[in-house]
Design a protein around this nucleic acid. Structure first.
Length: 588
RNA sequence: CGGGGUGUAGCGCAGCCCGGUAGCGCGCCUGGUUUGGGACCAGGAUGUCGUAGGUUCGAAUCCUAUCACCCCGACCA
């Protein structure tokens, strides 16, 4: 490809509304252009990378036995009513009406559409297993789209859906997709981690996320460097940090802590470690009678060590809180504790509350907690002696770095990541309400066992950049770079020798199947270098008359400090050998 | 949805407080000189000042409404 036949438009300054580095660089490199909030045009340069990502996905999906189809962007509301998601999905689901006033949605995902295909097409166990996938535009009307293509409203997703006879079959399909995902992200040259994940609103029981490691990621990942344990922090189990409870050493005392409403301040004032304090978090669970009339909310008190954070996902799994909860209002707190937030504790309540004690707190002794009286805390508090043994002990906190790994094999570390893929086991969550059955060997209808598997294609673009950039611009992994190699001739428009050598190399690399672009603008070197470093093409060959006099050109990888002088006869071979291409998995 | 902020040339911004008919840098066009890290000189083009209404002899500037966008929060896979 010659640049004169392509389209390059770079900006020296990023538009002011871009906030994350990947978005700024993509806008500056002319890969995307914003049309509306969370809605982007993929410019020629950006689209090339997207197509490369898609190609890898297609190859690995085929290798894993998935079959491509293409389901519509616009889907009838009736399908979504069958599964209840027309009501449940909320305003993120883009709803539209046709000219007859019929309701449709713009798909945020395709479980309903694919299950509809399955129930119509899959009649016999002999047709199973099958895995349908497509790469299609999605729309989620996020309240606050941000981070460019990382959290856009319109985006491209690969979604696959497996159908199996039974759970064992579904587990096999799940594993096949899991392995395919590992190959996909490996081939893209990304540093990623597969982590155990919460199953969230989609439901089901087994789930992994694929996270691209980047400090700017929205998700926190807990992993153990000494084992293969890795989980989203939402899910990572926090073991008790104290395995046994020591006997009390202090008497309980009410201590004046004026104006110290936070555990940190109390610990500082009393000159105690933060880990000696206990924080009180008050939640409210809405209640209703059999007729659905609202009753007064039930108030819950959760106790965590002062240096720990509540994990709301874990809390939401406790019976009584699993129907939904919120933070209690100040009036609810005063009503039950007789005190404002900041000095709350489990001792001396005005009205009974439901108590949940974190595993670590359950084994603490001589701890500090609020006295339910403004400006006072208790010190030296002990279970059994000063308050009843906790009835409900649970894991309700986020793990922190240094916690023991739940598999008992070391200590956890925390990393940040960008979720670019997920695999879910769905079971019959969709097949049951949509009555998607097949005839099994025994001649009886059975519900299809399903799994779903997503990859955020356009998000990958942002994630790859968040992981691979420097102050000059993007540094693409070879596999998803818009071009693998750029040839920068110095004086293409005025030096015959340079032009001839550059043209020759361009032809040679093209013939070798290398994705090369020749910058034939005749620009000054600084302009060319700055542009291509911004765009992030990983390999660069510079052709100048100075080198050509010695029959040399220069090679420089985007990560190299300096260029290497290379004799003209070997440059093509050198470039070929530098480009890392992982072969597709063998297709079945 | 709550709080905060911003809309002026393709991009980045000044001008607004204190009303007088729009400017700077980059980019773009023409000519010339240059040519190994975002060149220089000369000339040039580009604006419904987000939109609508109002005040005024006169509005980018003041007032009202509205829209869009961004940030923080809430919300959400």
């Amino acid at each position: 490809m010659r640049l004169s036949n392509f389209f390059l438009s770079t900006l020296r300054e990023a538009p002011a509304d871009a906030d994350v580095v990947s978005q700024k660089l993509m806008l500056r490199a002319g890969m995307i252009k914003k049309l509306a909030s969370g809605i982007y045009t993929y410019m020629p340069m950006g689209l090339r990378s997207i197509r490369k990502i898609e190609k890898i996905i297609h190859e690995e999906m085929a290798a894993a036995g998935a079959v491509e189809l293409l389901m519509p962007v616009i889907q009838p509301a009736e399908l979504w009513m069958e599964t209840g998601r027309w009501q449940k999905y909320g305003p993120e689901l883009m709803r539209v009406k046709d000219r007859h006033g019929r309701d449709f949605i713009v798909q945020p995902t395709s479980e309903e559409a694919v299950t509809d295909i399955a129930r119509n097409e899959i009649k016999s166990y002999r047709q199973l297993p099958v895995n349908f996938y497509h790469i299609q535009t999605k729309f989620r009307d996020e309240r606050r789209p941000r981070f460019g293509v990382m959290r856009g409203r319109e985006f491209t997703m690969k979604d696959a859906y497996s159908f199996d006879r039974d759970e064992a079959g579904a587990a096999k399909s799940y594993d096949a997709m899991f392995k395919a995902y590992q190959r996909i992200f490996t081939r893209m040259g990304l540093n990623f981690r597969a982590v155990k994940a919460d199953t969230g609103a989609i439901g089901g029981s087994r789930s992994h996320e694929f996270q691209v490691i980047a400090d700017t990621g929205e998700d926190a990942i807990a992993f153990c460097p000494d084992s293969d344990f890795a989980a989203n922090i939402e899910l990572a189990e926090a073991l008790p940090l104290l395995t046994t409870r020591a006997s009390p050493a202090q008497a309980m005392m009410k201590t004046s802590t004026p104006g110290r409403a936070k555990c940190e301040d109390v610990a500082t004032l009393l000159n105690l470690p933060l880990a000696q304090t206990v924080k009180s978090i008050v939640l409210a669970a809405e209640k209703a009678d059999e007729k659905g009339n609202p009753l007064a909310a039930e108030v819950w008190l959760l106790l965590l060590r002062g240096d720990h954070e509540l994990n709301e996902i874990k809390a939401a799994k406790i019976a009584g809180l699993n129907k939904g909860f919120r933070f209690a209002t100040e009036s609810e707190i005063v009503e039950h504790f007789g005190c404002k937030p900041g000095y709350l504790g489990p001792i001396g309540l005005k009205k009974p509350v439901q108590l949940v004690v974190d595993r670590t707190v359950a084994n603490m002794r001589d701890f500090v907690s609020g006295a339910n009286e403004e400006d006072f805390h208790f010190t030296g508090v002990n279970w059994s002696r000063d308050l009843p043994e906790p009835a409900l002990v649970a894991d309700i906190r986020n793990v922190v770095a240094g916690d023991p790994s739940p598999d008992g094999k070391g200590v956890l570390e925390i990393q940040r990541g960008i979720e670019v893929g997920h695999v879910f086991y769905l079971g019959t969550v969709y097949s049951a309400p949509m009555k998607a059955t097949f005839l099994d060997e025994d001649g009886k209808p059975k519900l299809l066992e399903m799994g779903c598997y997503g990859i955020g294609v356009t998000r990958l673009l942002g994630a790859a950049i968040e992981q691979n950039h420097d102050d000059k611009g993007i540094i693409w992994p070879d596999a998803i770079a818009p071009f693998e190699v750029v040839i920068c001739p110095l004086g293409y428009d005025r030096n015959e020798a340079v032009k001839a050598a550059a043209d020759h190399l361009h032809k040679e690399l093209m013939a070798a199947g290398i994705d090369v672009i020749l910058d034939d603008r005749g620009e000054r070197p600084g302009v060319m270098f700055a542009d291509w470093e911004l765009v992030g093409v990983p390999h660069r060959v510079t052709v100048g008359d100075r080198g050509l006099k010695e029959n040399n050109v220069e090679y420089q990888h985007r990560r190299d400090e300096k260029a290497t002088v290379v004799p003209v006869p070997v440059i093509a071979h050198l470039v070929k050998s530098k480009i890392a291409r992982l072969a597709a998995a063998p297709s079945e």
